[in-house]
Amino acid sequence: MTKVIQPAEWAHHKAVWIGFPSHPELWLEDIDPARVEVVAFARAVHADGAGEKVILVAASIEASDTARKMAPFAEVIIEPFGDIWLRDTAPIFVSKSAARDFRFNGWGGKYDLPGDDDIGARLARTRRVELEHCDWVLEGGAIDGDGTGLVVTTEQCLLNPNRNPGFSRPMVAEFLKRDLGFSDVLWLGNGLLNDHTDGHVDNLARFVAPGLLAIPEGTDNDPNWRVYQAAAENAAAFGVEVVRVPSPGRILHDEEIVPASYMNFYIGNASVVVPQYGSSNDDAAVAAFAALFPNHHVVGQRADHILTGGGSFHCISQQIPG
Rank of each mutant, 00 (worst) to 15 (best):
T2V: 14
K3H: 11
K3V: 12
V4L: 14
A15S: 15
A15L: 11
V16Q: 01
V16S: 13
F20N: 02
F20V: 11
P21N: 02
S22A: 11
E25C: 02
L26V: 14
I31N: 03
P33R: 09
A34H: 01
R35Y: 09
R35E: 11
V36C: 10
E37Y: 07
E37P: 08
V38W: 05
A42M: 07
R43E: 15
V45T: 10
A47I: 01
G49M: 00
A50P: 01
K53G: 02
V54H: 08
L56Q: 00
L56C: 04
V57E: 01
V57Y: 04
A58S: 00
A58W: 01
A59G: 15
S60T: 15
I61V: 14
S64F: 03
M70R: 05
P72E: 02
E75L: 10
E75W: 08
F81E: 05
L86M: 09
R87D: 13
A90L: 11
P91C: 03
V94E: 00
S95A: 02
A98W: 03
A99G: 12
D101M: 06
D101Y: 03
F102K: 00
G109E: 00
G120L: 08
R122A: 10
L123R: 04
A124R: 02
R125L: 13
R125Y: 08
R127Y: 12
R128A: 15
L131R: 13
L131T: 15
V137Q: 04
L138D: 05
G140W: 09
G141Q: 06
G141H: 07
I143M: 11
I143A: 12
G149R: 11
V151H: 09
V152I: 14
T153K: 03
L159R: 00
N162A: 01
N164P: 07
N164Y: 12
R169C: 11
P170E: 13
M171A: 14
K177D: 05
D179H: 11
G181Y: 14
F182Q: 03
S183M: 09
V185D: 10
N190T: 10
D198C: 08
H200Y: 06
V201L: 03
P210T: 13
L213Y: 10
L213R: 09
A214Y: 01
G218I: 04
D220M: 04
D220C: 09
N221C: 12
N221K: 05
N221T: 14
N224F: 10
A230L: 08
A231Y: 12
A237R: 15
A237K: 14
F238G: 04
V240K: 13
R250E: 07
I251D: 07
L252M: 04
H253Y: 13
E255Y: 04
V258K: 12
Y262R: 05
Y262V: 06
M263L: 15
I267K: 02
N269E: 11
A270T: 11
A270S: 15
V272N: 06
V273W: 03
N281Q: 14
A284F: 04
V286I: 15
A287G: 04
L292Q: 09
N295R: 13
H296F: 04
V299Q: 12
G300I: 06
I306P: 09
T308C: 08
F313H: 12
C315L: 07
Q318F: 04
